[in-house]
Design a protein around this nucleic acid. Structure first.
Lengths: 142, 142
DNA sequence: AATAAATAGTTGACAAAGTCAACAAAATAT
DNA sequence: ATATTTTGTTGACTTTGTCAACTATTTATT
């Protein structure tokens, strides 16, 4: 059996999630939650995306998403317009402000990670990234 | 600059969390939250651990932890006794029931991970785990 | 076309998770 | 001896998440 490996994988998961603060509710110290940033990401990458698509992609409750959208619209990072094809539905668009905010979040996230890697030399980063890619390779195609 | 590395690390984090469903609170159908299981893990692996140690290890609010401990104690999976060395503090012990519950959670989680690793040979698992440990080493001591 | 069934999103009511500051008791520093 | 710091608890609060009822529209059935 692979039990030994499994335990080690789980141990790594525990370490990794704490190290990078992946379970922290707030996305860094921004005014957006992790879920909100994911929704923004959806709107950013697909103009006019429908709430139903996001519900499917992020696997969240539609009522909950509805509230998130109200909140994001109130904060002017997205706007919603009634779909012409389906009157029940709305199309979502990220605003100029939304794009700006999203880019800032990306930058902050980069800085956060940069801080966590600051003790590593470029050579060590090189090794780290290579190992990560090898892990990804193994897991996704193994 | 290390931007290239940073982006790759973030990409790996996204991949990893999705792959292992770390953000899906949904599949945890147990009566314990993710955080509660981590606290149980702490108590399981270190008899008499102090709340302050858990706060440091899991990087959570001490008030929040305090409530989690009350809840876990109420459910009889841990017990707390005042520390003799430091009267302000309490030592935590996992109960017999707690051990049983924790083992069950572990088994479920192992099965979950086992499924995700099922395509890998033992040799590949060996490689995977080695790389994970090397990453942990790099990040935590690098 | 008329009706029934399904679907998209909103809302209300609630529960669970998490934050923050004030606090008491004990330990440590001055 | 006194001041400061640390540990954990508590109250008050906000945010996050769940579930079901509801409205409006679309699609399927007759």
């Amino acid at each position: 059996m692979k039990l030994k490996y499994i335990e080690e994988v789980r141990a790594f998961s525990r370490f990794y999630t704490v190290f990078f603060g992946i379970l922290d509710k707030r996305f860094l110290k921004s005014r957006f939650s992790l879920l909100e940033t994911r929704v923004m990401h959806c709107a950013y990458t697909k103009e006019g995306i429908l709430p139903s698509e996001i519900v499917a992609e992020l696997n969240i409750d539609k009522g909950f998403l509805s509230r998130i959208l109200v909140s994001l619209e109130k904060r002017k990072v997205i706007k919603r317009v009634q779909s012409k094809k389906d009157g029940r539905s709305v199309q979502m668009f990220i605003t100029t402000l939304g794009k700006k905010e999203f880019k800032k979040l990306t930058k902050d996230s980069n800085n956060e990670v940069a801080g966590l890697l600051s003790n590593l030399s470029n050579a060590q980063c090189e090794i780290l990234v290579r190992k990560m890619n090898e892990i990804k390779q193994l897991l996704s195609e193994g």
